[in-house]
Design a protein around this nucleic acid. Sequence first.
DNA 1: CAAGTATCTCAACACCTGTAGAGTTCTTGT
DNA 2: ACAAGAACTCTACAGGTGTTGAGATACTTG
Lengths: 195, 195
Amino acid sequence: MVTDRPVGRRPGDPETTRQAILAAARTQFGERGFDRATIRAIAADADVDPALVIYHFRTKRELFVAAHELPVDPGAILAAIAAMPPATYGEQITSMYLGRFAAPGSPTFSLLRAAATNEDAAAMVRGFIHTTLLEHGTPLITGPDPQLRLELVASHLIGIVVAREILGLPELRERPLQDIVAVVAPVIQRYLQGD
Amino acid sequence: MVTDRPVGRRPGDPETTRQAILAAARTQFGERGFDRATIRAIAADADVDPALVIYHFRTKRELFVAAHELPVDPGAILAAIAAMPPATYGEQITSMYLGRFAAPGSPTFSLLRAAATNEDAAAMVRGFIHTTLLEHGTPLITGPDPQLRLELVASHLIGIVVAREILGLPELRERPLQDIVAVVAPVIQRYLQGD
DNA sequence: CAAGTATCTCAACACCTGTAGAGTTCTTGT
DNA sequence: ACAAGAACTCTACAGGTGTTGAGATACTTG
């Protein structure tokens, strides 16, 4: 492999290089999962030597973690939802989470795919769900077993993403997200407010 | 690694050896997914030389496929369900699929985990869902958009398995399956019979 | 009972992986 | 202007991967 890349430090801001690596990492991890994504491929995507990836992030695992630190304030999302009328909670949550999770390029989706075979990633998804839904979600919910029903909400939304983006079930795949939200939202709503 | 296993053909029925390999493959694929499961580990589990695995199945992919051929008659399951009163469809489907998918040792679960990063496995899950639910499921369902709603049923059940067995959401993890079925069944029922 | 074939182990191959160390160029502080 | 350090590439290593070919043993068929 001929690289003809000039040796030594590059002119300009190193942070852009770092960000390029992180972006490439997100893409590769998202498309192939943790194991199949190789540092060499990530480096190639970022137009960088593989050793530089290690130089910046010490190890593949740490790169994965760094690439998936979520720039999201968990409280704010649910606060925004809570400000709307309770009858719309189901729709809000559904469209918000589907929109976020179901974008194959997004860090969240990448995490989800990786979680299948990687306990680190699974823990991160668990943490994400915990801080964005389980922890702050109880105000949204009424009726018995709130925690269980919140987890069922998460389950359903995750299941839809898996079925649509990973398994590729035909109907889910072809319909625009809005159609799906329309059918699912009442079900989520029902979970939130008990029978 | 010292094997001290006698060289040459073994006495007895070769089919038992073959089955031992398949069983080991199911375990390994189920626990680690397609990539992390190594032929060497599978061979070790089956107390067999790695080359024998290749001899029997030609390639890792073919082994995977062979290990997950489902000894299940798709029509029979749904026929049994259809014989019961329609008001119980939701509960039947829920407990049947959760019971089958959610057992971490089962071929179906193994398939599901592998599907995250493996298109072959994803296709197999898609096929399984198609032949057991989408294809023969329409008699169970009334109302508009039957296909979409059947896929949403599948999505939810898959999501529960993912959340429980892979992500390890606490409440779902600790509750016995029956509790979960009790809460989920009405929702599935609702999907089946429209609003 | 002999010959042929199916089942098996051993050793090794070619390849790919994450990562370390040495050397080169740029930037920063004085 | 210069030294110190940070950001980079190159080369290479050690270990693990699926897979192959040769040889050993058992079963099967005449």
